[in-house]
Simulated scan of single mutants.
Amino acid sequence: MRGTITATGILLVVLLAYAGSCIIRPFRDCWLCDGRGHHRSKRKSKLSRPCRWCKASGKRLRFGRRLWNRVRRVHRDAAAGARIAR
């Protein structure tokens, strides 16, 4: 029983730390271009092209922040729908 409480506490601390880091730094470097915005072609190493994953910005929204934005959008839309239904 005590091990379950400890594991739950550790999991909660890790999730809160990740949520805090998503609030502080919502973007991360793109995994394909390593944050440069362009990546080199495999055939010719001197040619580079804009990264299609990050749309040449070099940054991508983190998974936790994307999830948080979706939850907020659903909540906002539900609240707006409840106001209209009255």
Rank of each mutant, 00 (worst) to 15 (best):
L15C: 03
S57K: 08
R40M: 10
G9T: 02
R70V: 05
K42R: 01
R60P: 01
D34W: 04
S48W: 09
S48T: 11
P26W: 01
G3F: 04
K46W: 14
I84G: 11
R25P: 00
I5S: 06
R70C: 05
L32K: 15
G20Q: 14
R83N: 12
L32A: 13
V71H: 14
T8H: 05
R25L: 07
I5T: 08
W68S: 04
S45L: 14
R62H: 02
L12W: 05
A19M: 11
A78P: 02
R28T: 01
A79Y: 11
K44R: 15
R86N: 02
C30K: 06
P50S: 12
L11P: 00
K55Y: 08
G35I: 06
C30G: 11
L12H: 08
T4I: 03
R73L: 06
L61A: 10
G9N: 07
G81V: 00
R25I: 04
D29Y: 15
S21M: 14
R70W: 09
I84V: 15
D29C: 14
N69T: 06
R65S: 04
V13T: 13
R65P: 00
G9F: 02
V71A: 13
N69V: 06
L32M: 15
W53Y: 14
G81T: 01
K44T: 13
S48M: 15
A80T: 08
S21D: 14
G37P: 03
T6K: 13
F27I: 01
